[in-house]
Every structure is written in structure tokens, then in C-alpha cells.
Design a protein around this nucleic acid. Sequence first.
DNA 1: CGCGACCTTGATGGTGGTCAACATCCGTGG
DNA 2: CCACGGATGTTGACCACCATCAAGGTCGCG
Lengths: 239, 239
Amino acid sequence: RDACRYYIGWMNLSMRTVVGYGKLPPISCENCLVAPYTICHPTAKDAPQEVCASRREIRASAAGRTLLRDGEVPESVGILFSGWALCYKQSGDGRRQIISFLIPGDTLVLESLHFPNLSIPYSVKALTALSSCIFKTDDMVALMGATDVQRRELFHAQHRYMMSLHQRLFDLGRRSACGRLAQLLLDIYNRLKERDMVTVGNSFDFPPKQEHLADALGLTTAYVNRPLPQLRRNSVSSL
Amino acid sequence: RDACRYYIGWMNLSMRTVVGYGKLPPISCENCLVAPYTICHPTAKDAPQEVCASRREIRASAAGRTLLRDGEVPESVGILFSGWALCYKQSGDGRRQIISFLIPGDTLVLESLHFPNLSIPYSVKALTALSSCIFKTDDMVALMGATDVQRRELFHAQHRYMMSLHQRLFDLGRRSACGRLAQLLLDIYNRLKERDMVTVGNSFDFPPKQEHLADALGLTTAYVNRPLPQLRRNSVSSL
DNA sequence: CGCGACCTTGATGGTGGTCAACATCCGTGG
DNA sequence: CCACGGATGTTGACCACCATCAAGGTCGCG
């Protein structure tokens, strides 16, 4: 039962599919454990009832379901409560590039808050079973503009996303397989850590399959394994 | 004198450094040939004097000069009038990834209009001698918000940039050297064409060196040459 | 027990990296 | 006008990294 478990440096990722994925959020945002890590945490803290009030739906999606298709104009915004999702682009012949992994607390889709009526540049699909709180885009935009702290929070979130996009461009262009893998794992680790989803021993659930890692890193499934032993042993220089 | 001239498919790029780079824009936006292709073209068309009025400076920069450094907060916005610039990220050990090439009419830097007080995620440097119209960021933001068409134009420009970033992510991760090269050249061709910078015979000036192409495509200088003959011959399938 | 999903590992080959030699172009200065 | 030197483009030889294919292993599940 300890297989499918990686010890990479000091990280300890469990690749089991955990039963908890997809469990539903509470009715009230007041007690929501994820709320402090979402885009609307300032409002959720000061006036949680406002957030709940504009929520339209609590939606559960099965693993593998496509939530948004490249080029569509999303008509609603979701806040991921439980489970993972992934953003990707796919070409006609099946090649897929994963842009980013979304974890609980992330917004689905951040772009639509800035470009409410424009198409999104990637598809979104549920990696595991997941649940999310759904808002009408306009309502969420209004919520975001209501207070100064909230507006600033949105800006910073969008800015962080921009930074990470440019970083990923650098990684894909100028890093070896090993470096890209380390970078991706570290990034996910940090984001999970921020959200209290890393338990003692630096261990955390990690639902992506090697197939997903490969598509995120611009590699092939089989090759993802090669750099792993090296990473497992110790920290590596010149990634 | 026809060397340093590529015929790639139907494209005809001249890699000479052209003397015209860096020539200064007119004092009045009314007669500016580039204005129709800039971010502020709606205002420049309806009320050109407003644009000129808020311009602070006409600035010329020598080739190779660094205009903005990764992580800085830009205090002004420029509209590129003549010459090329490039946006890139660089790591401590010298590896460089070019994010995008900026051509006349492009905004320098588009991000700062959306995140006026936040740092930019890349450095910007003059690829050729160049000249640009400089505005205080706040003034430009105000100009952008003045009319509906202008606001929409800004949104669409930012949206286009987002789309192209995601596209480049896919290209770097999932395309061969040949495909990436073709994609980049086509992209530049289209942008130049839009701006009337392609003359008869599909020929245009192309100041980037192979070094720049390599850094943009995630390749090495020497290897950029390999796919060229293949592209020259004809259009290629399965890029 | 058997099956399917996934991870692991080996063998082999191609794409692209690295290094070096050479060609070409262009500006500079004699 | 020519000689020289530096920057850049071109090409070859060789090798490393990663892709591809295939076989086998492990785990969870019915």
C-alpha cells in the first residue's frame, strides 16, 4: 500500500486516488475551509453571506468530464472546492499540452473575470471527481468590484497567473526534463502548502497520472520515469 | 546583396539591418502612419490631439539597450513607432527564453495597462534601433478608459495577447523544431501584414538574428538552420 | 483468479545539442 | 581601393536527451 508513493527529495507524494475528492462544500461560506484561499477571501471573511447569496449552484462533476472547451465563452464562474482540474490545449492530431493544474480554492476560470464575454484560450477538464460553487459571471465580477481590497485581490491573482504563465514558457523552452519536473512538483507543493493541504512529513495527495505529467512537461509518458530516480536521491544542481 | 535573404515557402524575409529603424514619429498623431495599428487607434482616429497631448516624450533607443528589467514596475508606457523590441526571461546561468517580438504599433508594455503598479514578468530590450512615444502609465490608463470603443479595444488586445501566450506554450511543449519555426514566422508575417509592412512578393524586413530565433523557439543557434531547407522547399505537413 | 489501469524498465533510434571549421557579409581603417 | 577583423550564417561530426515500442510488474477491483 505504499507503492504509488513518491519520495522526491523531502517531498512525499501519494498518487492514490483519494476517496475524499468531490465531496461537497458547506452551504454557508462562513464555515468553508477553502474560502480563505479563494479569490474572494476578503469578501468571504468580511461578509460571507454576500458570497453565498450570489452563488447559483453547487455542482459536482465526475472525473474526466470536460467542463469547458477551447474557444467557448464561459457563462459562469466556479470556485473549486474539492478535487483537481486541468487546463489544456489540444491539437487536431491528439497532441495535448497541459497549461496548468487547478487545485481546491482555484478559480475556474480566472480569465473569464477579466474578459467576461470573450472566449477562453484552453479547455478545462476534471482530473478527479470534483465539486465547485458556481456563480453567474456578472455576479462574480460585481462581487470583485465591490470593495477595494477585493479588487486588489483579483488583480494580484491575475498577476500571479501571468507570472506563472511566463515562467512556464521559460521552463518549457529552456529546461531539461529533470528541471521541468522538479519545477512543476515544487510549484504544486508550494500551492498546496499555502492551502494547508500538505500533512506532516511533507506528504500530500497527488492525483495526476504520469500521462498528465508528461502532457504538462512536454514529454512522453514513459520518459517521465527516467528523471525520477535522480530527483529521489537528492537535490540536483543545474536543473 | 541577396544573401541574408530567406525564401521560406512564399515568404521572403530580408535579414538585413535596415537603416530606417529608429526614425522618429511625427509630432502630431494625426498624420502618424502607425497610429491605426496601435492600441489607442480608436482615440487616435476620433481625437488625435488627445493622444498627442498626453504624450510626455518621444524617445529613441539604441539597438541592444535594455528598456525594462524583469521584476521592475514600469513607470511609463511606450508605443513602438519604429524598430523591433523583444520580451524575454533570463536565468542566472545565461539561458534565455524570448517570450515575444514587438513590432511597430505594439505597446510597451501591455501588461502595465492592466497591472499599473505591479512588476512585469519579463525583461524588454531593443532588438534594433527604435523610437517610441512615451506616456505616463496613469495617463494612458485614463485614455484607455475614456470611451467605450477604446476600452473594448484594450480588452481585445489583452485577450489576443493571452491567446498567443497559450498558443506559444503549446508550441514549445508539443511541436517539433520545424513546426515551431514555421509557426513563429507565420505569426510574425501575419502581424506585419496587418500593418502594411509586407511589400510585394511577400517580402519583409526581419531583423532578428538566428540567435534570437533560437532563444524564442527553445533551440540552439546552430540548430535553427537545420529545418530551414525543408521549409524553403515547400509547405510541410504535420508540423 | 483474472482483468484493466497504471507504473517501470530495457532496447533502439531520431531529434536536437555541442563543438569546430569555414564561409559570407559588413564596417573600419589604412 | 584593398586589407583586416568581427559578427553572423552554414555545415559536418559526434553525442546526449528524449521518443518510441515492447515486455513485464504492481495494484485495485470485480
